[in-house]
Design a protein around this nucleic acid. Sequence first.
DNA 1: GCCATTTTCCTAATGGTATTAGGCTGGTAC
DNA 2: GTACCAGCCTAATACCATTAGGAAAATGGC
Lengths: 189, 189
Amino acid sequence: MARAGVTAERLTAAAAELADEVGFENVTVSALARRFGVKDASLYSHIRNARDLRGRVAALALTELADRVAAALAGRAGREALVAFANAYRDYARQHPGRYAATQQELDQPDPATVAAAVRHAELTRAILRGYQLSEPDQTDAVRMLHSTFHGYVTLERAGGFRHTPRAVDASWSRTLDALDSVLRNWPQ
Amino acid sequence: MARAGVTAERLTAAAAELADEVGFENVTVSALARRFGVKDASLYSHIRNARDLRGRVAALALTELADRVAAALAGRAGREALVAFANAYRDYARQHPGRYAATQQELDQPDPATVAAAVRHAELTRAILRGYQLSEPDQTDAVRMLHSTFHGYVTLERAGGFRHTPRAVDASWSRTLDALDSVLRNWPQ
DNA sequence: GCCATTTTCCTAATGGTATTAGGCTGGTAC
DNA sequence: GTACCAGCCTAATACCATTAGGAAAATGGC
């Protein structure tokens, strides 16, 4: 009987695809085993448990997101950097809703890979602020505000929270970026 | 054998408490039945299914949140209104993490109560803008930005996303509100 | 090429959760 | 008081997560 060739990496990649197709909360050990044509129990040679699996997807997604954002940010500063970061972030969340959801799960006992990706992400967000005159602790406050706005927007957009008003979500997004640029250039106090 | 006196309302209230205690994703029909001292199957006389139950909790939470925000907003305008709204919103999310999580679930096929509460919430957010000179479509854009920032902040705060930087989250929150007030007073273009 | 070891996958079993079908019974309406 | 209905039960099915232990395929040394 030929082996199915399951590895932790292939499992993680397949779980990420599955998440984008059916939602992160529906990424299940059973569904994954089904996709590989093996029994559920067989996966436990490669992953510790379901939580571990979801953690791996989270780490993968955080890395991919950070890569995209880093590429978008390369060589830009100020408003250009802000817009490039924000659009790369939102595009990733829209193209990979399941993976994006994975990045938002409990960070209570995260594995090292997740922590590393999260730290990199925070550093990248901070890189937006090159070109704006902000020093600590304003910089940290601004990073938190930017991250909140981006995350909140893509989450609400996806959940359908903006569906009740006819105004195009792309237009509001663009104006939100204008507003963020404006407030970064004129940070209060 | 005495009856347990289960009603849809008591179930919903208990589910909301349970959500705050163990997390919304752990609100299960079984756990709820256990709490009422009845068998799982008995709950299906009162709720359609687990999805229905979670929807009821979402509607309850949205109503409570809107009530609190409305009370905070009463008689205020401009910056005062913004701060009062934002703090009421964040306080609710922190005091009732499970209920707050419920408000963010799939809004694909929401029940009428959920829709009504969501609409009321949007109207309240719009009420913040009394005192700022904004007309449509800027108003809609600003409402979406505000909602995104509030939601994003409380979500990331709760998920531990701000834990890597020592700066106090309350301080950053306060400065974020300053920044929002500033940008609403000087809305770009 | 052969054997020991390791890895991968299997079957079997347990326990939790969601859900439906059908039955018993205590309260309520007449 | 009888009949009905709502509220609760048992029983059964079906996933899903997880562990234990066994068999066969790959691997490495000889």
